[in-house]
Amino acid sequence: MLSIRNIVKEYAGHRALNDVSLEIESGKIFGLLGPNGAGKTSLIRIINQITAPDSGEVYFNGERLNQSHIEHIGYLPEERGLYKKMEIGEQMIYLARLKGLTRTEATAMLKFWFEKLGMETWWKKKIEELSKGMQQKAQFVATVLHKPDLIILDEPFSGFDPVNADLIKNEILELNKQGATILFSTHRMESVEELCDSIALINKSHKILDGRVKHIRNSYKNETYLLEYTGSKLTFDGAQPFSIVSETEGEDDSHIIKMKLNGSTANDVLQYLLPKTRINMLQEVIPTMNEIFIEKVNLTA
């Protein structure tokens, strides 16, 4: 869907993006991660053709990105905003027409969305009469009204209450199911694991990590396991096939050990422990995206 190749963007002596390349597959949900100021918004603005890169290219469905692609992209900026004094219905239609829809098409789509999200009564309202959450909802509709193939969402859940955040999340998933590719940037890691197929991590203008979420998490496994057993507390003499990272007391006489296996396998651990105690659980710890994020960012810092 989107192929970003060797993008470099500089602002007055400061390099916002340094040789960033990304592949975003069609029909997938792609997460663009990175701490504040990493260059996410710069990259998003380049994809939206708000700014142009100093060097490097962007390809949209195999074609060099150009003005005709604007109609296929929907963009929800992090800084939300609509015309405060304009009626919502009229405003949405105007924005959709700027994206190439005719008035009739826009009106029909708007009716559909307003009904779907329970906003029918908002048609004649002005933005300034709405609450912040309602404004966000309206802006989301404006983003997807023209049925874009690529939906770019910059921090889509900020500013929503949990109910509306969930509503929007489901809408995003549904749009994705219908074939839309989603690119969203966020620092909310839970939503990344829940929603994204692939991610790219950008820090200090460099891409430092990308790939499928599952692969990344698996590749960050570092032989760490969690063990829970019941009975009297074990003492180790150093001959055990693992090293202890931490030990905690659980409830009802249970104990939890976070351990690191140094070349041995889970079988070795079980074999060693079976005669000594009653094992409730032995589980490999797969690092969360949050942990990977923090680790990678700190590493490059």
Partner: peptide
């Protein structure tokens, strides 16, 4: 100024030059 402060500018600029 209105377009800039209300931040709608970014939405519009993603549609037109």
């Amino acid at each position: 100024i209105e377009e800039k402060t209300s931040r709608i500018i970014e939405v519009i600029i993603s549609s037109v030059k």
